[in-house]
Amino acid sequence: MNQIEQLVERLASEVPEAKTSLDRPAQQSGTWWLDADLQGHSVVTEWRPGKGFGISASPSRAYGEGPDEIFPNLQSAGDRVIALLCGREYTQPPREMFLTGLRDIRRVSQDDLAKRLKVSQATVSKMERRSNMYLTTLRKLVAALGGELEIRAKFPEGVVRIKQFG
């Protein structure tokens, strides 16, 4: 029995009311899919042998899009699927953007940001092109855009917020 078949067994045992449907690939090494539904709330799990599990629970499913969350092992993936099903929770795709994109969605110009940081517009332009910077600088920049910088470390067992840097 492979890992996703074990997940089906675990669901049958721990959430017997859930309906599951396993979608097998043409090749055993291909991607397997498990559709699970509990009273109209659905969770889609993708298993790539050797890579892990991808999990999504979202009312919108764009064509050909990857999973919202990735889990490296069966235990953590199973825990997450059960929590999503039983808690009727949704997943969110990871949001990533460059600093310029972040400034754009906050509707702040480089000039305005420069004034808030008390630096020149040219300095802001350079900051936005850097691939590395001090955490203190990044914290000030995020604060100037109205946000708060948080540093989190992601492990298979969960996410930890690192407080070392204030």
């Binding site: 690939p25 291909g30 991607t31 899919w33 991808g54 899009e65 999973p67 969350e69 990871p94």
Partner: peptide, 28 residues
């Protein structure tokens, strides 16, 4: 693998068989 917000065309590893050998299916 994880969603980056972009839509991708069918990938080889998502190929499935159907009831008709002349038809292939790609799952996403």
């Amino acid at each position: 693998w994880q969603s980056d917000g972009r839509m991708y065309p069918p990938q080889d590893d998502s190929l499935r068989l159907t009831t008709n050998p002349a038809v292939m299916c790609f799952r996403s």
